[in-house]
Design a protein around this nucleic acid. Sequence first.
DNA 1: AATGAATGAGAATTCATTCAT
DNA 2: TATGAATGAATTCTCATTCAT
Lengths: 189, 189, 189, 189
Amino acid sequence: MHPKKEKIFEAAIEKFAKKGTTSTTMQEIAKAAGIGKGTLYRYFENKEDLIFSLIEFRFNIIFEKVKADIIKLDDPIQKIEKVIDAHLNFCAIHGVNKFLIREVWGYKSKFKNAIQEMMSLYTGFIKDIIEEGIEQGKFKEVNALNAATALIGMIDITIIRCMMFEEDFLTNKIREDIVEIYLNGMVID
Amino acid sequence: MHPKKEKIFEAAIEKFAKKGTTSTTMQEIAKAAGIGKGTLYRYFENKEDLIFSLIEFRFNIIFEKVKADIIKLDDPIQKIEKVIDAHLNFCAIHGVNKFLIREVWGYKSKFKNAIQEMMSLYTGFIKDIIEEGIEQGKFKEVNALNAATALIGMIDITIIRCMMFEEDFLTNKIREDIVEIYLNGMVID
Amino acid sequence: MHPKKEKIFEAAIEKFAKKGTTSTTMQEIAKAAGIGKGTLYRYFENKEDLIFSLIEFRFNIIFEKVKADIIKLDDPIQKIEKVIDAHLNFCAIHGVNKFLIREVWGYKSKFKNAIQEMMSLYTGFIKDIIEEGIEQGKFKEVNALNAATALIGMIDITIIRCMMFEEDFLTNKIREDIVEIYLNGMVID
Amino acid sequence: MHPKKEKIFEAAIEKFAKKGTTSTTMQEIAKAAGIGKGTLYRYFENKEDLIFSLIEFRFNIIFEKVKADIIKLDDPIQKIEKVIDAHLNFCAIHGVNKFLIREVWGYKSKFKNAIQEMMSLYTGFIKDIIEEGIEQGKFKEVNALNAATALIGMIDITIIRCMMFEEDFLTNKIREDIVEIYLNGMVID
DNA sequence: AATGAATGAGAATTCATTCAT
DNA sequence: TATGAATGAATTCTCATTCAT
């Protein structure tokens, strides 16, 4: 990755997270990246390309990170815990989700397919863990895709809430609560 | 509610859900509503006002619906089940969430506060149910706000996934799975 | 003159004086006149017609007033004094000039000729007095048109200054100063 | 002064003089200046800014010119003659006044104060000359502000008349007549 | 006759993109 | 290679005018 490209990404993600893609101008990104407006177009064909590359890039990082953390583990339960951990940690550090969440459910048709594929990839990855757990008789026989989606939803919306109200989501029992609810449920038996 | 206002809302929500607010032009909305461009401005001060009014209107409906369904119940567990039911049902019928979700985590400062308040209202309502359950010794002693957020996340992201992949989210065990996971957890004891 | 037409004129002149013709909407005029927007179009073909009719109407009044005051007089010097008087008085009462001045030097080609004609009429009227004075050996042999224009300029711009700075232009020696300067000049012999 | 700014000013002043500021579109100005519409906005924040900058710029030039011509003189009478000269000459060359007059008595609040200040500056400058003359016993004891306003009125309205009827205001005894009337009055003693 | 809801042409302004330097 | 001045398509919003009631 060209170091200047990285700088652009960094500048863009910050702006996008704050104001959304449409309201962020190429000018702003260029300025925040400390380069000329025209230079952006050396690295990206156009704004759309920049946005999509950024999403893809960030998604891959988070996905790789989660996969790397999981790979050493055997137990599906531990894996799920680790997914929650890794996802929360990554977002805490990179502040990416507010923007990702918004764009992931994107409209621009050009993105749509690619983003859906990404989402499928990530959801599918979690789904696999869950199916594994079901096969091993450790997880209930729910629809694995539903279960995977539910998990991502719990995590992402919690992150967004924290960002919205500027809570720190690494403290405040969030990790523990999500793990407990997801694995054991709210009800006391 | 003025019938033309309703028509505008209907047209707008469809466009917004498809392309997002920023990419939808007033022109388009007018055309979809079968009225002239200028007429929009008889009913809404400007685009921002239209968007916000729409969000507020839809939010109130869904909130009232959920509250109305819950009010007759005593048991917090049943209440939670009902929340899941009502929320899913409403969105199934009105197709609102894909748009709402996007705007709810909005940037435009003018919206932000009002929307945060709405979210707080809804989250707070669920949080109350959970606290009630905790007091009655039926729910675990998790942070009630975390639990409420987690529930909304599970539901909303599932709805979005279904919309994205055009799945029907009233069949497919979705309601049962969410209820089961949320209340009893994934793990088989 | 239809009484409603008069009401419209009154409303229009007030708005026009405050904000100029272009920035005043038909809506505003209608509201200020206490009638419906559409009703305006029963009395005037369009906005341009309204503006022009108003100018013409007001101009005629001021012109008739000045002429009426002058007609009884013989001495050109007294006539000039009376012109200054009448013009100042009329504007004091009717607050018309700020608007008139602006529109009189108008652009809209449709007005231009008619307005130029009005101005010619008024200027010509004063010019006649001056020529009379010259013939009678009472006024210097200046170009009578220049002298007439100069007089109107002195009066109108003074009125405008007063309106601008909200001075009362009936007190403050204004009448005396203009008469003195115009007739006898600034210099002490 | 950026050469392109100057070009814009030139184009704008011509259009404004012909059609007034409100009826002149940014499009037109851009076209007349031989540049793209968007380019205007590189040099001026918005239309208001363009108008005001133009007024300010032109006013300063005329004011400086008049001051420069006066500074070498001692006699208040000669100074007044020079003011008339300089003002007429400047307007003859730059054709600014028809536009200036219209805007000077403007409504847009943003302009108002600044323009009033300009007018006060110019009027005040002439007022000082007159007070000087009064102190030296050369001018009559009129209200100096009234006298200053009267002078500006004589000159400006005469210029406007000439522009309106397309007369050349450097010939035609205009200068001589204004000087004579203002200093010595119309009446033959 | 009077109204005001509806309209759409037209204006200001923004911003992705190009291109000469 | 890097820049930012220049551009004009596209967007929001206004308002004179029309017309059904």
